[in-house]
Write a protein that binds this DNA or RNA. Structure first.
Lengths: 150, 150
DNA sequence: CCACATAGTGAGGTAGCCTCACTAATGACT
DNA sequence: AGTCATTAGTGAGGCTACCTCACTATGTGG
């Protein structure tokens, strides 16, 4: 990620961003390693877990919806769901109302694992963002929200 | 990049971060495409250009120094320098004071290209961070600096 | 019925990193 | 001077997280 030239206040924003992001990733890789999950896999699991909270009783998310929630190409969503399916953490079922579509949801094992990861994180203060005080965290969230995709 | 649970202010920080970073990368990919450079390549060029500004007249940076400046493994630095060497944007020379070491510097063509990229960016307001006002940019830099590697 | 859009995935690919092992060179210590 | 540990760079091989394109099957609207 190149440096972003401009005013001194802006001079190294891209660089700072790149470095901070890599540190964040590294933090996640470390925390998820004991559970044999990659960050991307866990992120997909979170999306599925969240959807089952939002809409209890439904039979899961369509692949295309997983892709949308993760802001990735459908083909990429297929990939990460494949990985999780092999681990028996998610299951695919046919969508009863559209034969082109597939529904994906966490298995009980997947749900359990997601819970255990979250509990492990809860037991330790957030390792990465814990470096910031609450005010800075809120400020960061506010600013980052402006920088995401349109 | 998974969501980071915790307080609502913190709830989706990892997710926001991931999305913002991907948008930043996308922005760089677009801007560098006309110059046939990848973000990583341009970042390495910037590191070399910067070192020649800081220490004019020296014969370049050691590979290990490039790696340090980019915060990547030496092996990875070798890779990106290889790419730039193929494009004749950098040149390697033997270090006169240590026969194990290699010095790397931008070629005149590399220097010219780096200048042209920067001029192109200058002609257009920074596409990505331009969404933020100056105060937010300074705030972001301050916070990100706390989140980088130790 | 037909044209077009949608859903998912096979095939193939890239970028940006990494670890390990190896050879050659250097520096420190005895 | 000799020995050993460290350093520098890179070959070999690998992983993760994405991507585009093309294809088949299905659904929708005129």
């Amino acid at each position: 990620m190149p440096s972003s030239p401009g005013s001194p206040a802006q001079g190294d924003l891209s660089d700072l961003f790149h470095r901070a992001f890599r540190a964040l990733r590294h933090s996640w890789v470390q925390q998820l390693a004991p559970f044999e999950l990659t960050p991307h896999q866990f992120r997909a699991m979170q999306a599925l877990a969240k959807s089952s909270l939002e809409a209890p009783g439904t039979d899961g998310l369509r692949l295309k919806d997983v892709a949308e929630r993760l802001h990735i190409a459908p083909r990429s969503a297929t990939e990460v769901i494949d990985q999780l399916e092999v681990k028996e953490l998610v299951m695919r079922t046919a969508d009863p109302i559209d034969r082109r579509a597939t529904l994906v949801k966490l298995t009980p094992a997947g749900q359990g694992l997601a819970d255990r990861v979250r509990a492990a994180r809860r037991g330790h203060t957030d390792q990465y963002f814990g470096r910031l005080n609450a005010s800075d965290r809120a400020e960061l969230a506010r600013i980052l929200a402006q920088l995401g995709p349109l």
